[in-house]
Protein backbone atom coordinates (compact mmCIF):
# COMPACT_ATOMS: atom_id res chain seq x y z
CA UNK A 1 0.00 0.00 0.00
CA UNK A 2 1.33 3.45 -0.83
CA UNK A 3 1.73 5.72 2.16
CA UNK A 4 2.28 9.37 2.99
CA UNK A 5 3.42 10.39 6.46
CA UNK A 6 3.13 13.93 7.82
CA UNK A 7 5.45 15.52 10.37
CA UNK A 8 2.41 17.31 11.74
CA UNK A 9 4.33 19.75 13.96
CA UNK A 10 6.17 21.17 10.94
CA UNK A 11 2.93 21.84 9.05
CA UNK A 12 1.77 25.48 8.78
CA UNK A 13 -1.66 24.61 7.40
CA UNK A 14 -0.98 26.37 4.09
CA UNK A 15 -3.06 23.85 2.15
CA UNK A 16 -0.87 23.65 -0.97
CA UNK A 17 -0.79 19.88 -0.62
CA UNK A 18 -4.59 19.74 -0.46
CA UNK A 19 -4.75 21.54 -3.84
CA UNK A 20 -2.11 19.31 -5.41
CA UNK A 21 -3.51 15.86 -4.52
CA UNK A 22 -5.07 14.29 -7.66
CA UNK A 23 -7.21 11.96 -5.55
CA UNK A 24 -8.41 14.75 -3.25
CA UNK A 25 -7.61 12.69 -0.13
CA UNK A 26 -5.35 15.25 1.59
CA UNK A 27 -7.22 17.57 3.96
CA UNK A 28 -6.49 19.90 6.85
CA UNK A 29 -7.51 18.59 10.25
CA UNK A 30 -10.78 20.11 11.38
CA UNK A 31 -10.16 20.27 15.12
CA UNK A 32 -6.60 19.10 15.87
CA UNK A 33 -4.06 21.94 16.30
CA UNK A 34 -0.34 21.21 16.05
CA UNK A 35 2.45 22.66 18.17
CA UNK A 36 2.52 25.81 16.00
CA UNK A 37 -1.24 26.24 16.43
CA UNK A 38 -2.10 25.34 12.84
CA UNK A 39 -4.55 22.75 11.57
CA UNK A 40 -2.10 20.26 10.08
CA UNK A 41 -2.66 18.40 6.83
CA UNK A 42 -3.32 14.66 6.82
CA UNK A 43 -4.78 11.76 4.84
CA UNK A 44 -7.67 9.67 6.09
CA UNK A 45 -8.25 7.29 3.14
CA UNK A 46 -4.66 6.12 2.80
CA UNK A 47 -5.81 3.20 0.61
CA UNK A 48 -6.56 5.67 -2.21
CA UNK A 49 -3.04 7.14 -2.13
CA UNK A 50 -1.19 6.71 -5.44
CA UNK A 51 2.23 7.45 -3.95
CA UNK A 52 2.62 10.10 -6.66
CA UNK A 53 4.18 12.62 -4.20
CA UNK A 54 2.43 15.59 -5.77
CA UNK A 55 1.44 16.72 -2.30
CA UNK A 56 5.02 16.54 -1.12
CA UNK A 57 6.22 18.36 -4.24
CA UNK A 58 4.08 21.36 -3.37
CA UNK A 59 4.83 21.30 0.39
CA UNK A 60 7.10 24.23 1.33
CA UNK A 61 8.04 22.75 4.71
CA UNK A 62 9.18 19.15 4.09
CA UNK A 63 6.25 17.86 6.15
CA UNK A 64 5.45 14.92 3.85
CA UNK A 65 7.40 11.69 3.25
CA UNK A 66 6.03 9.38 0.56
CA UNK A 67 6.40 5.60 0.34
CA UNK A 68 5.37 3.54 -2.61
CA UNK A 69 5.32 -0.26 -2.82
CA UNK A 70 6.96 -0.86 -6.10
Amino acid sequence: MNRVTFKTDLCKGCGLCVLACPKKIVALEETLLNAKGYHPAGVKEMDKCLGCAMCATMCPDLVITVEKNV
Binding site: L10, K12, G13, C14, G15, L16, Y38, T57, M58, C59, P60, D61, L62
Partner: peptide, 12 residues
Protein backbone atom coordinates in the same frame (compact mmCIF):
# COMPACT_ATOMS: atom_id res chain seq x y z
CA UNK B 1 12.37 23.98 10.38
CA UNK B 2 11.91 26.89 7.95
CA UNK B 3 10.84 30.19 9.45
CA UNK B 4 9.01 31.16 6.24
CA UNK B 5 5.34 32.14 6.35
CA UNK B 6 2.69 29.47 5.62
CA UNK B 7 2.51 28.85 1.86
CA UNK B 8 5.65 30.87 1.07
CA UNK B 9 7.32 29.14 -1.84
CA UNK B 10 10.84 29.86 -0.59
CA UNK B 11 10.57 26.47 1.11
CA UNK B 12 9.95 24.69 -2.16
Amino acid sequence: PFHYCPGCTHGI
